[in-house]
Design a protein around this nucleic acid. Structure first.
Length: 787
DNA sequence: GGCCCAGCCTTTTTT
DNA sequence: AGGCTGGGCC
């Protein structure tokens, strides 16, 4: 261990727990750890990297380490910063610490995700970043809507340059810790013919006006805070005696910088991860962070956990052999003391429907043998694969559950309801207001919203405030005006009620009075009932929170609702979704070239993409405890078209001695390509005679001839620039003529009503006698002098 | 302003 | 094939 670590300052004893630990030289919580695990727990000071292979007790090490820090008096629970990626992981850790160390875990205020921890820090120092401490956190949906507005305001063709694409660029910049000014000019110009950087800038300005941040900002603003306010950073250095990081291989650059700034203080940082399970490169994770750890944190202790407690011999050997093909890895050799168990099976099917049939049959037979359905999982590469499997299971009456999919809080009805509540809480949440202003339909369409926007922008107020002013005028037609007035009055009423009413009850009232519930009650579509059910569930969950704002914070950051359902069902999920889970029996369908490894990953990231796909395969294989069953189909429908496909190269990479090729015993199979294929896997082709195989070969030849090497040589966005550069400056702040007070008798011009004379003035409201339209009440921001 | 049709695009997913 | 978006028409 490095010698330059500061010994932690002595702490007052946090009571009974410490006393207990001091009394017993070998504390109970250390019992049962293997030597490596124990080292990982007891190497408390200085940087530590724990390379924890699949199933080697990673979470156990993390939680025991925390218990150890507390029990040996090294830190209070509140002095330990512990970050995870997902809420699920954070929740699980909390539970396990509570189990180990008792209720002290309740006092771990700094155990959370990168994002929730960042949000907590930002709320304390919001003013240093030009934000109010009640800033809103936008989700992806809000983000994209805002991007669209920014793009439109810049008069860029939104068809050519969609908001979602800009969101992608900005997201990846934020993942790399780049503020608008830091984006390399070359990259910034990639979007919208050179205007990407300006749009990023404009987007950030809009966020600031809205007092809002997006997910990326949570980290980015923290970086700014830490860098520009050394005094603030040093208070966190004092506070966080120990830092722990879960799934370190998934950190992106921004998170890495965030950690490094915080770890500068005491250098007590322990990162746990597995480079072989890094599967989020496509969203900015840098495997390099873990590969470079010893370089970044000199003197680091590296502990390898290689004893696998999960899988039987054949399964583990298969997974190890596969992942050994990767070059960019730190290298671990997993071993088990478990029995060899069943060999891994590989089954070839004629097509994806037969594949689904075979899996269904296999599961039914397992079920007959008394296996628990909740110990069976089917892991697919892409969600689209789920459908055929689900169809088959429905047909068989086999209970299943799809994990992942659209999350509760992402459903439209929940987001609508949330938008209502956000407006009740905050007068200035324009995005929320815009979302629900015409839901249910009130006859307030684009035209009305445009008027609201114009006034809001001209007078620097929020949309809701703007609406309040406009209903006092004749700007809108009577119908729209009445509708808007009702809405404005309703919000005033609800906000007043919010003070004293339990939030569940309030939500119910809002949904009722706004007509939102009624809208779904009247809806004849099949899922309307489910949506109403979801709304009820939302109202129920609201009451679990002390107040509305804390509920809203929870929803923005903890966007998952664990249904907690434990009924006996087969689980179907993506390989990504399966990380961290384990099952007795795992089915892995779709091991075909193009699907897995996924062609797009190969096209976009080349060799690195292939290695990531292989890691994904490794994750899939290591989810199984006792039984592992791989499948490939010779024909699969992709985007509606039947395509023939070759078995995945990953199948060829599996060790023969641990794998058994199963003959698909179905009538639909055209022959026994399965069994023989594996025998001759080194020499593709020649002796195969089944139609499927021949088709596959033809297809392969065609693909090769067609220049489908997969690697695009261009790297260019050049070529298709058609429009010249446009003006960028000032597009977002189109202030209308600076209007202040008009005097009685002044001549004014109104776009809709034409010329007229001011009859009287009341603040920003003018009564004007229009030459043609007669007497109208208008807002001064809508008229110009003259006429 | 609202409804209906046509065309588009399709990985993986968290916060 | 299918779900969503955008545009055009009433």
């Amino acid at each position: 261990m490095s010698d330059h670590n500061t010994t932690p300052a002595p702490l007052p004893r946090p009571g009974g727990l410490a006393a207990r630990a001091a009394a017993q030289p070998t504390a109970g919580y250390l019992a049962g750890l293997n030597p490596e695990q124990r080292l990982a727990v007891e190497a408390t000071d200085g940087p530590v990297l724990v390379l924890a292979g699949a199933g080697t007790g990673k979470t156990r090490v993390l939680t025991t380490r925390i218990a150890h820090l507390i029990a040996t008096n090294r830190a209070y629970p509140s002095q330990i910063l512990s970050v995870t990626f997902t809420n699920k992981a954070a929740r699980e850790m909390k539970e396990r610490i509570a189990h180990l160390a008792g209720p002290v875990a309740e006092g771990m205020p700094w155990l959370g995700t990168f994002h929730s921890t960042s949000a907590k820090i930002l709320r304390r120092h919001a003013e240093l970043l030009d934000l109010r401490s009640d800033f809103t956190i936008l989700d992806t949906d809000d983000q994209i809507r805002l991007m669209k507005q920014v793009i439109q305001a810049a008069e860029i063709d939104e068809k050519r340059w969609p908001g979602r694409m800009l969101a992608g660029f900005i997201d990846s910049w934020k993942n790399r810790g780049l503020a608008p000014k830091d984006v390399p000019p070359g990259e910034a110009s990639v979007f919208a013919n050179g205007r990407g950087g300006a749009l990023y800038h404009a987007y950030q300005e809009r966020l600031k006006t809205l007092n809002a941040v997006d997910f990326g900002d949570l980290l980015l603003h923290c970086l700014t805070l830490f860098r520009e306010h050394a005094d603030v950073l040093s208070t966190y250095h004092d506070r966080f005696r120990y830092i722990l990081v879960d799934e370190y291989q998934d950190t992106n650059t921004a998170q890495y910088l965030w950690l490094r700034l915080l770890a500068q203080g005491r250098r007590n940082i322990a990162c746990v991860g597995d480079d072989d399970q890094s599967i989020y490169g496509w969203r900015g994770a840098e495997v390099d962070n873990i590969l470079r750890f010893e370089h970044d944190f000199p003197g680091a202790v590296v502990v390898r956990l290689e004893r696998n407690y999960r899988s039987t011999g054949h399964i583990l050997a298969t997974a190890s052999k596969l992942i050994a093909r990767n070059e960019g890895r730190l290298g671990k050799t997993l071993r088990t003391e478990d029995v060899a168990g069943e060999k891994v099976t590989i089954t070839g099917a004629w097509d994806s429907q037969e594949e689904a049939r075979l899996i269904g049959d296999e599961i039914e037979s397992l079920q007959r043998d008394g296996h628990n359905l909740s110990e069976i999982a089917i892991l697919v590469r892409i969600s689209a694969q789920m459908r055929e499997i689900e169809d088959r299971f429905v047909h068989l009456g086999l209970p299943y559950r799809v994990i992942g999919g659209p999350r509760f809080y992402e459903r439209a009805e929940i987001r609508d309801a949330m938008a209502y509540l956000r407006c009740v809480v905050s007068q200035s949440d324009d995005l929320a207001f815009e979302r629900i202003v015409n839901v249910p339909k009130r006859g307030l369409g684009d035209a009305t919203i445009q008027i609201l926007h114009n006034h809001a922008r001209a007078t620097s107020v929020s949309l809701l405030q703007s609406a309040r002013a406009i209903v006092e005028s004749d700007e809108l037609k009577p119908k729209a005006r009445t509708a808007l007035r009702e809405l404005v009055e309703a919000f005033a009423r609800w906000s007043a009620r919010a003070e004293h009413m339990p939030q569940g009850e309030l939500a119910e009232l809002v949904l009722e009075e706004s007509g939102y519930t009624e809208m779904w009650q009247k809806d004849r579509s099949a899922d309307a009932a489910g949506r109403l059910e979801n709304l009820k569930e939302l109202v129920r969950s609201l009451d679990e929170f002390p107040d509305l704002p804390s509920f809203l914070e929870h929803v923005s950051l903890v966007m998952d609702a664990d249904s907690g359902e434990t009924a006996e069902r087969v689980s179907i999920m993506t390989l990504h979704g399966a990380k961290g889970l384990e099952f007795d029996t795992v089915f892995l369908p779709g091991w075909e070239e193009g699907l897995f490894p996924n062609q797009r990953a190969l096209d976009e990231s080349g060799r690195a993409g292939l290695e990531e796909e292989r890691r994904l395969a490794h994750v899939g294989l290591t989810r199984a405890r006792k039984r592992l069953k791989l499948y490939f189909a010779s024909n699969r429908r992709i985007h509606g078209l039947w395509q023939s496909s070759l078995p995945s190269r990953f199948i060829d990479e599996l060790p023969e001695e641990h794998v058994e090729v199963v003959q698909a015993a179905s009538n639909y199979s055209q022959g026994g390509y399965g069994a023989s294929r594996f025998d001759r896997m080194e020499s593709f082709g020649s002796s195969y005679n089944t139609p499927g195989w021949q088709r596959a070969q033809e297809n392969k030849a065609k693909a090769n001839a067609g220049g489908g090497s997969g690697f695009s040589e261009s790297g260019g966005f050049g070529g298709n620039r058609q429009r010249g550069p446009m003006l960028i400056e000032g597009e977002l702040t189109a202030k209308s003529s600076a209007s202040s007070a008009y005097n009685t008798g002044a001549r004014v011009f109104h776009v809709k009503f034409g010329p007229g004379s001011v009859a009287s003035v009341d603040g920003n409201k003018l009564t004007v006698d229009f030459d043609k339209a007669g007497r109208k009440m208008v807002l001064d921001s809508f008229v110009q002098r003259g006429g």
